[in-house]
Each structure stands twice: as C-alpha cells, then as structure tokens.
Design a protein around this nucleic acid. Sequence first.
DNA 1: GTATATGCAAAACCTTTGCTATAGT
DNA 2: ACTATAGCAAAGGTTTTGCATATAC
Lengths: 155, 155
Amino acid sequence: MTMTLRELDQRMDLFRSRCMERGLALTHQRWVIYRILAGTDKHLTPEAAFGQIRKQIPSISLATVYKNIKTFLDVGLLQEVGTSGQMMRLDANLDPHHHLVCVRCKAIQDLSAEGLRPVRLKGRLPKGFRVERFNVTFLGLCGQCSPRYTASTRH
Amino acid sequence: MTMTLRELDQRMDLFRSRCMERGLALTHQRWVIYRILAGTDKHLTPEAAFGQIRKQIPSISLATVYKNIKTFLDVGLLQEVGTSGQMMRLDANLDPHHHLVCVRCKAIQDLSAEGLRPVRLKGRLPKGFRVERFNVTFLGLCGQCSPRYTASTRH
DNA sequence: GTATATGCAAAACCTTTGCTATAGT
DNA sequence: ACTATAGCAAAGGTTTTGCATATAC
C-alpha cells in the first residue's frame, strides 16, 4: 500500500468539494464507496470494492455501488483503466500516470508519469485527431508471477 | 481503409500456415471469420464481425464466431485491444503499433510503432516486474468528432 | 418539502459452455 | 475412420434499469 492517510484525506476533500459543485448529495453510502476506491492503489473491480464496502455497510446493494461508480466516472472522480475484456478496473489516481499490468494475475500497478521520458511523435497523427491525453500500458509479469519465483512455487 | 488486398493476402497466408502448424481445421467458417477480421483496420467487436460474416454465411452462429475468436487469440492470430469496459475490440495487425481511441465514438485507429520515438523509462520499474511489451493509447477526439466539425453538425 | 439516492428485483448485455450433428483430415 | 468444429440452446457473469422507500438538502 503506497497510499498514505494524508493522500487519502486529500482525495476525500476533492470528493467532497466535487460533490458539492455538482449537486451530489453526500450520502453515507457514497462516502464509503469512494473512500474504499480512493484508499487503495489496487484498481479494484466493482465486485471487489463491493466486498470491502459491505464490511462497513452490510445492507448496501451492488446496484448502488455501480450507480455511484458511474456517477464518479461522469464527474471525473474516478477513471477506468483500459483492460482487455474482463471486469471494469477503477482508478482514483487522477494524476498523470501509466500502468503495469501483469498478464498472469491481472494486477495493475501505477507508474507515475515522471517515471517515463516524454512520449514523442516522430511524424504526424491522422488528420483531424486531437489528443487529449495518452497512457502507456506495460504488459508483463509482476514480481509474484515472474518465472524466477514461480519456478520454485506451486501454482 | 488502409488495408490493401496484398496485405490481406499476406494475413490469410499467415492464417493458413498458423492453422496447419497448430492442427486447426481449415473450415469455411473459420476462414471467413478471419478474413473479415483481418480485412479491416476498424478493430471490430465480435458482434460487428458477426454482422459482416453473416452476409457470407447466413447460417453461422454467434457462438462459432466467439469460439474462433478465442482460438485466434490463443494462437496469436489476433490481439485484443485494451478498451474500457465495453465490448471486446479485435486487432489482426500483428506488427508493433499503438492506438488512437476516440472517446466520443469509440473508433480506434492504429499508429505504427515507427510513428513514435522510443518510449524510455527514467527510473526503475517496481521490483521484479518483467516487461514483455508495451503499448501507448492516445485518447482524444477523431476528425469526425472533434469540435471543429461538430460545431457545425447536428448530433 | 422537494430533489436525489438507496435497495430490491428484474432485465439487458456480452460471453461461455455442453451437447449432438456435421465436416475436415 | 477419427478428430475437430459447427450450430443450437441454455447458462454464466457483469452491468444497467425501474420503481417504491428512505435520506439529504
């Protein structure tokens, strides 16, 4: 866990002010849902978040979690990580950054944009395309899954 | 359409030889499914491909299309483009390349790896992570969707 | 008090699976 | 002939929707 409490507090402050700006009610559920998503760097799936959230609000419904995730995506409090096919992966890190994706266990780690030399185009983009942002995805095996370790490990 | 007939023929040659190597039967369905997917640079969804394929084989079933897509992914005749959430997007371009994704209409265009100066790390990757490959996704608005055009266009 | 959000159940959507018949080698 | 594949229908998993009740403002 690289997330400090101070960083989480900052995220929750942003959450509160963004909700007020957008006229979103500060419900207990909404608060807890965002706190779980913002309090980890693991890029949770909705299902996984639901599991955590339910520990705090046993009566919460999965639909509420989904509805709020959608709201958070709409107002820019959350981003979706582009994965292939499977479940939605959520990211409350709003700073420019990239991703390391383990092709085996599907873990996703962040890599700060400062960790990379600027990406630069050689030529020209297709006519008319306006880039808003970009992100680099590194695919490979994480420490847990890389052969060095798995060779001596039961699967 | 940037795909030439010659390029498509090359892809179909690879398809044939890869099937033989792997002991995959060259059925009419399999051939047509791959030809549709390999004959466009639009990164079709399974559903969209099914629509095209059905024009040539009206009796084909969607399950057959899915099964073959999975097979093609397994044997490396196809790759999946990492999108956020929605449907699977397929890519028969096996050369190193990146993607331009329109956030509005979801169109995906290829950008050859030569179009980009090499991506380079400044620091070190998280301990133990072994990169196999990487890809850059540029998000923005395509020519069709960019404000310049939409301002004078009905939605 | 009014608007918005929750919870529930049902639906929608995309993808996979099991099985029998059919086609490829 | 033997093995792999197609087609069908049914199931599986994820996400969305509609509506009545409850909560925030």
